[in-house]
């Protein structure tokens, strides 16, 4: 296990012990909540890992690289940003997905754009957002977030490359 994972385990176990010493009932609640949210994400999680398994085995690395690879250019950005903006993939599923794609030919900038748009832009949820904030604010927020995601992709690519 890598050291940062161990530290994470240490911190969380420490917090749990403090929580337990302060309030047993609340700590029970914490454990139940953790288990429930884990169980809720599990199907989507396993499904995506399975689909990605097929993708990386059956789609040659070259093909992935052509569409969303380091040199895929504008098309790569467009594909990853649109997929990110439109789909509703939970982050806990998106990260392993991005990792598997990165290991198999996808570009860093493209994956950063994908994750950034996925989190900040919500085309499907826009009507809901508009019912709270109105269309002007909703479209404004989503558009700025969409274009800003390209900046994020570029900067992440620069920093990781150094």
């Amino acid at each position: 296990m890598d050291p940062s994972t161990l530290i994470l385990y240490g911190v969380v176990i420490g917090c749990l012990l403090i929580s337990f010493s302060k309030d047993r009932k609340k700590t029970r609640e914490v454990l139940i909540k953790a288990w429930k949210s884990f169980f809720m994400i599990l199907p989507a999680f396993l499904t995506v890992i399975f689909i990605m398994g097929f993708v990386v085995v059956f789609i040659p690395e070259k093909t992935i690289a052509v569409y969303i690879g380091e040199r895929s250019g504008f098309i790569g950005y467009l594909i990853s940003s649109l997929v990110g903006a439109i789909t509703l993939i939970p982050g806990f599923v998106a990260f392993p997905m991005a990792k598997m794609l990165l290991d198999n030919g996808a570009g860093i900038a493209q994956m950063a754009v994908f994750i950034s748009t996925l989190m900040m832009v919500g085309v499907v949820t826009a009507p809901l957002e508009a019912s709270f904030f109105g269309w002007k604010a909703t479209i404004g927020r989503n558009l700025i977030a969409y274009f800003y995601s390209f900046v994020v992709g570029y900067v992440v690519w620069m920093v990781v490359r150094i």
Partner: peptide, 28 residues
């Protein structure tokens, strides 16, 4: 396919439990 899936599930199982516990802690 099975090997890739297995590896990824193992990797995720290693890092997921503390993160979800943290989520629960925040929430409560």
């Amino acid at each position: 396919v099975y090997r890739v899936v297995g590896q990824n599930i193992l990797f995720m199982l290693e890092i997921i439990p503390p993160i979800f516990l943290l989520l629960g802690l925040f929430d409560v």
